[in-house]
């Protein structure tokens, strides 16, 4: 029973943060057909915002999260304008492949700017909030993890509500499904694209504050989250939001189960073995439909 509770809690925490890091990537791929390699830098930037505000300025955690959201939003908009917008609508190019590289190039620039400013040292970010609580007979969970899961789930729900209920959210999905029809409806597609990449990056930025506190802030702190996000997104089915969420929690569940029942060292090898088998059997991922998975 304690094992079960431990697995459940760990699944929710891990899955939520994986989801938050990866969901922006899905959103961007779904609407723009760009596999955005700059998402890792947004996580990294969020980590430094957290470090800067929580350590040096001593601001409140909520303000730090909001600041990370805003700064990553602007960074995402700028990245889109530099590396994706100029390539839109050009005929005779492999748009997906070129933007894969151009967004990666931007990521490298951002990373090296961070290196210039902050140096290569790893900076400790304090927990957004401290303390732990005993949930069930010795199964502990830190307040930091509770907050991380709550904020991640909250943001993903808000994204879902935005996409299904609001005028612009619906327009984002419409653009992903039929761009010329969306234009005929009067949707200003030119600035829907920067908006989407800004929003997606903002979510990664918030995740970055939490991940920075779990690990540390450093110029290459976004590398691993980027790889993990790519795996979640492809495992879930490129471009499918529900798929990404299933995949995030499925991966969390596998890792937690192996860690609790077998050993932490086995969690990655077993996870990747499962991913390998699933993708070989279902190459479009958990929820992807061949070439039409669109938001």
């Amino acid at each position: 029973m304690t094992d079960l509770v431990a697995i459940l809690i760990s699944t929710i925490v891990l899955g939520s943060i994986y989801g938050l890091v990866a969901i922006g990537m899905t959103l961007i791929y779904g609407i723009l057909r760009v596999l955005d390699m700059s998402q890792g830098s947004m996580v990294m930037a969020g980590g430094f915002v957290g470090w800067g505000l929580l350590v040096s300025a001593g601001t409140s955690p909520l303000l730090a999260l909001a600041a990370a959201f805003a700064i990553a939003f602007l960074l995402g908009v700028a990245t889109q304008l530099v590396s994706v917008q100029p390539l839109l609508g050009r005929s005779g190019i492999d748009f997906e492949m070129i933007t894969f590289i151009t967004t990666f190039a931007v990521a490298m620039v951002i990373q090296n700017v961070a290196l210039e400013i902050f140096g290569p040292r790893q900076r400790d970010v304090p927990p957004v909030i401290g303390g732990t609580v005993d949930v069930y007979r010795g199964v502990n969970i830190s307040y930091q993890s509770i907050l991380m899961a709550a904020v991640s789930i909250g943001l993903m729900l808000m994204l879902g509500i935005f996409l299904t209920r609001s005028r612009y959210g619906m327009a984002i999905r419409a653009v992903a499904q039929d761009i010329s029809a969306a234009r005929l409806m009067g949707v200003p597609i030119r600035w829907m694209f920067p908006l989407v990449m800004g929003l997606a990056s903002a979510l990664a930025g918030v995740a970055g504050v939490f991940l920075g506190a779990q690990l540390f802030a450093s110029p290459n702190a976004g590398d691993l989250p980027l790889l993990e996000a790519l795996i979640v997104v492809i495992f879930g089915g490129l471009g499918s939001l529900p798929g990404t969420i299933y995949a995030a929690y499925a991966i969390g569940l596998i890792q937690s189960t192996v860690s609790v029942l077998i050993a932490t060292t086995w969690s990655l090898p077993i996870l990747y073995a499962v991913i390998l088998v699933v993708l070989v059997l279902r190459p479009h991922g958990l929820a992807g439909r061949p070439s039409e998975a669109r938001l």
Binding site: Q177, D178, S180, A181, R183, L184, G186, P188, R190, R294
Partner: peptide, 22 residues
């Protein structure tokens, strides 16, 4: 194109062009 709908010029295209997953 996207500036014309707000002016009141509406084009219903051949082949419907619905948003399939809405």
């Amino acid at each position: 194109t996207e500036e014309l709908a707000p002016l009141g010029l509406v084009h219903i295209p051949q082949g419907d062009h619905l948003f399939p997953d809405l």
